[in-house]
Amino acid sequence: MCVVALAHRVHPDWPLILVGNRDEFHGRPAAPLHLWDDGSGIVAGRDLQAGGTWLGVHAPSGRAVVVTNVRGAMPDPAKESRGALVSDLLRGQGRFSDPAAEDLRRFNAFNLFAVGGGEARLLTSRPVPLIMPLAPGVHALANEPVDEPCPRAERLRNALAAAVEAGADPATLLDTLAEEDDPALFLGGDVYGTRASTLVAVATDGTVRMTERRYEAGGRSNGTTALDFRIG
């Protein structure tokens, strides 16, 4: 993901709302949102190049995780996959299911939200490796280090905060993410651009609504997947 916002325990009907755009090269293969067939219980799209994911929900536990890269940091192909970090955090199993701050140096630069058990955390490797709890509220990340201002993240944070204050249906945020005249959020490039807009909304009764709208080169619509399921 390249811009994402999180509403944590502030909406009266949806204690967890996670919404964002994934920007990526259009030539990088990916599978649409689905329940993975490996028995992991992960519901997510899948990066078919590295095998992990950028945003997902663990259906048995309700854990939700999303990652962004960080602009300006040259990727090192020898480092661990950020998508694998997301997968391990979602499952609660694997080498990186409970990382320490020093473990975050093993990945190319990233920002990440992890939510589970009623708690939310921020994990980041820039400017320094850091794991910190998040208070109930509306938070946002994009491709900038967390100690730098980011208008793109603030634009989406404000949109989510307004929806929360109005008690609005979270699904309206998908239209905000797809506004082609707002380059702060939607990138309609032919080579690199917004590949997917994703919404995760978890209701007070444990019902999960998860929607992914996909886009191809030029910002053209390329299908929608909507899944409803219950935690556990």
Score class of each variant (00 low, 15 high):
residue 3 V to N: 08
residue 4 V to K: 04
residue 5 A to L: 14
residue 6 L to K: 07
residue 7 A to S: 15
residue 10 V to D: 08
residue 11 H to C: 12
residue 12 P to N: 02
residue 17 I to Y: 07
residue 18 L to H: 03
residue 18 L to P: 00
residue 19 V to T: 06
residue 24 E to A: 10
residue 24 E to V: 12
residue 24 E to S: 14
residue 29 P to T: 09
residue 30 A to N: 02
residue 39 G to M: 11
residue 42 I to R: 11
residue 42 I to V: 15
residue 43 V to N: 11
residue 45 G to D: 03
residue 46 R to M: 10
residue 47 D to F: 01
residue 49 Q to R: 14
residue 53 T to W: 03
residue 54 W to H: 02
residue 56 G to V: 00
residue 57 V to N: 04
residue 58 H to M: 10
residue 60 P to V: 10
residue 62 G to I: 09
residue 63 R to W: 00
residue 72 G to D: 15
residue 72 G to L: 11
residue 74 M to A: 15
residue 79 K to T: 02
residue 80 E to T: 07
residue 82 R to T: 09
residue 84 A to H: 05
residue 85 L to C: 11
residue 87 S to L: 09
residue 88 D to L: 00
residue 90 L to H: 03
residue 90 L to F: 04
residue 90 L to A: 05
residue 91 R to D: 00
residue 96 F to Y: 14
residue 96 F to T: 00
residue 104 L to P: 08
residue 104 L to F: 03
residue 105 R to P: 01
residue 108 N to R: 06
residue 109 A to V: 04
residue 110 F to D: 13
residue 114 A to D: 03
residue 122 L to N: 03
residue 123 L to W: 08
residue 125 S to P: 10
residue 129 P to L: 01
residue 133 P to G: 04
residue 134 L to I: 11
residue 140 A to G: 14
residue 141 L to E: 09
residue 147 D to Y: 07
residue 147 D to C: 07
residue 148 E to F: 06
residue 149 P to E: 08
residue 149 P to G: 05
residue 151 P to H: 01
residue 151 P to L: 01
residue 152 R to W: 07
residue 152 R to I: 05
residue 153 A to G: 15
residue 154 E to S: 15
residue 155 R to L: 06
residue 155 R to I: 08
residue 157 R to A: 15
residue 157 R to H: 15
residue 158 N to L: 15
residue 159 A to E: 09
residue 164 V to I: 14
residue 168 A to Y: 00
residue 169 D to S: 13
residue 171 A to T: 12
residue 172 T to E: 10
residue 173 L to P: 06
residue 174 L to Y: 01
residue 174 L to P: 03
residue 176 T to G: 04
residue 178 A to H: 01
residue 179 E to M: 07
residue 183 P to N: 11
residue 185 L to A: 12
residue 186 F to K: 00
residue 187 L to E: 14
residue 189 G to W: 04
residue 189 G to N: 03
residue 191 V to C: 03
residue 193 G to L: 06
residue 196 A to R: 01
residue 197 S to F: 09
residue 198 T to Y: 04
residue 200 V to G: 00
residue 200 V to K: 02
residue 207 T to H: 01
residue 209 R to G: 09
residue 216 E to L: 05
residue 217 A to D: 08
residue 218 G to H: 12
residue 218 G to I: 06
residue 222 N to F: 08
residue 223 G to F: 11
residue 224 T to Y: 04
residue 228 D to V: 06
residue 230 R to S: 13
